[in-house]
C-alpha cells in the first residue's frame, strides 16, 4: 500500500530532521510511530502528504503509494489523492474546522470538493457518516458549531470526515491525545471497529507506547529523526534493542506500576 524507502528530510541547509526512514504498511495494517516531541514523527506524515512546511523537502529516498512515487506528483494529482485516497485524522479535529461555520456546512463542502454530489446527496452522506461513528443525533451535530461539541464528539466528526471516501490510507496524528481517558478508550474502540470494516491501512503517530502496542501490528520508535527500534509489538515490548526504548517503556505509568512515595 504505502512504502517509504529510506527518506531523508531536511529544512533548508539544516541537519536532517529525519534520516534514512523506511516504512511499509500493507492493506488493513496499522503501523505506529512512537517518539517524544521533536523526534520527527509528524514530519513522516507531512512528508507522505507532501506538505512539509517552509523549505522542508525530501532530499533522499522515495515514497511509493500503490507503486506510484508521491514525490513527483503535481498539484492536481495531489488534490485528487488527498482527502479521498489518503486522509488524515488530527489531534484536535475542532481546530481543523472553521469555528464560524457549522459542522454540517463544512462536511458538505468537503464532500462536494471531492465528488460530484449535489448538496442534498452530500448532506445525506454526511449524516450517514456521522451515524456510522455512533454520534448521537447526527442532525443536531450537523447544525452545531465546532465549539458546541465536546472534544470526543469533535474527534468523532473528524473520524467521520476522514473516512467519508473510504480512504486506502489513514494518517492519524495523536488522534486521542487531547481526550479524557474514558473518551480515549471509546475513540480507540471506534477506530479499531472502523478499521475492521474498511480494510484501510493506517499510520498512527503517538507518544503513548501502550496505545501503540494496543492498536498496531508494527511499531517504529523514533528518536531525533532516527529509527532506534522497529518490530512487532512483542519485539518492542519484550525484547527492545535500544536503551532508549527500554527507558521509554520504563517511563510509562502503570496502575500496577512502581510508586515513588
Amino acid at each position: 500500500m504505502l512504502e517509504i524507502k529510506k527518506i531523508t528530510v531536511r529544512y533548508g541547509e539544516n541537519p536532517p530532521v529525519l534520516e534514512d526512514f523506511s516504512l511499509l504498511v500493507r492493506r488493513g495494517e496499522i503501523v505506529a510511530i512512537v517518539g517524544e516531541s521533536g523526534s520527527g514523527k509528524t514530519t513522516v506524515i507531512r512528508a507522505v502528504l507532501g506538505n512539509l512546511p517552509g523549505d522542508g523537502r525530501v532530499t533522499k529516498g522515495d515514497i511509493l503509494f500503490e507503486g506510484r512515487s508521491l514525490l513527483s506528483l503535481n498539484r492536481e494529482e495531489w488534490r485528487r489523492l488527498r482527502g479521498t485516497q489518503i486522509s488524515m485524522i488530527f489531534q484536535d479535529s475542532g481546530a481543523m474546522m472553521n469555528p464560524t461555520r457549522s459542522v454540517g456546512a463544512q462536511f458538505v463542502e468537503y464532500i462536494r470538493a471531492h465528488s460530484g454530489l449535489t448538496k442534498n446527496e452530500a448532506r445525506e452522506k454526511s449524516l450517514e457518516m456521522l451515524s456510522s461513528v455512533r454520534l448521537p443525533d447526527p442532525e443536531r451535530v450537523m447544525k452545531s458549531y465546532p465549539f458546541e461539541l465536546s472534544g470526543g464528539m469533535r474527534q468523532r466528526v473528524g473520524i467521520a470526515m476522514a473516512l467519508a471516501f473510504r480512504p486506502k490510507l489513514l494518517l492519524a496524528d495523536e488522534p486521542t491525545s487531547a481526550l479524557d481517558v474514558t473518551t480515549q478508550a471509546q475513540i480507540v474502540r471506534q477506530m479499531t471497529l472502523q478499521k475492521k470494516e474498511s480494510d484501510a491501512a493506517m499510520i498512527l503517530i503517538t507518544h503513548n507506547l501502550a496505545l501503540a502496542a494496543y492498536m498496531s501490528d508494527h511499531i517504529i520508535v523514533l528518536k531525533d529523526g532516527k529509527v532506534v527500534d522497529s518490530g512487532s509489538r512483542d519485539h518492542i515490548l519484550r525484547r527492545p534493542e535500544s536503551g532508549y526504548t527500554k527507558n521509554l517503556l520504563a517511563a510509562v505509568p502503570a496502575v500496577k506500576g512502581a510508586r515513588y512515595v
Partner: peptide, 9 residues
C-alpha cells in the same frame, strides 16, 4: 480505560 504495557492486548 487506562492503556498500559501490562494490559491484555
Amino acid at each position: 480505560a487506562v492503556f498500559d504495557l501490562e494490559m491484555d492486548f
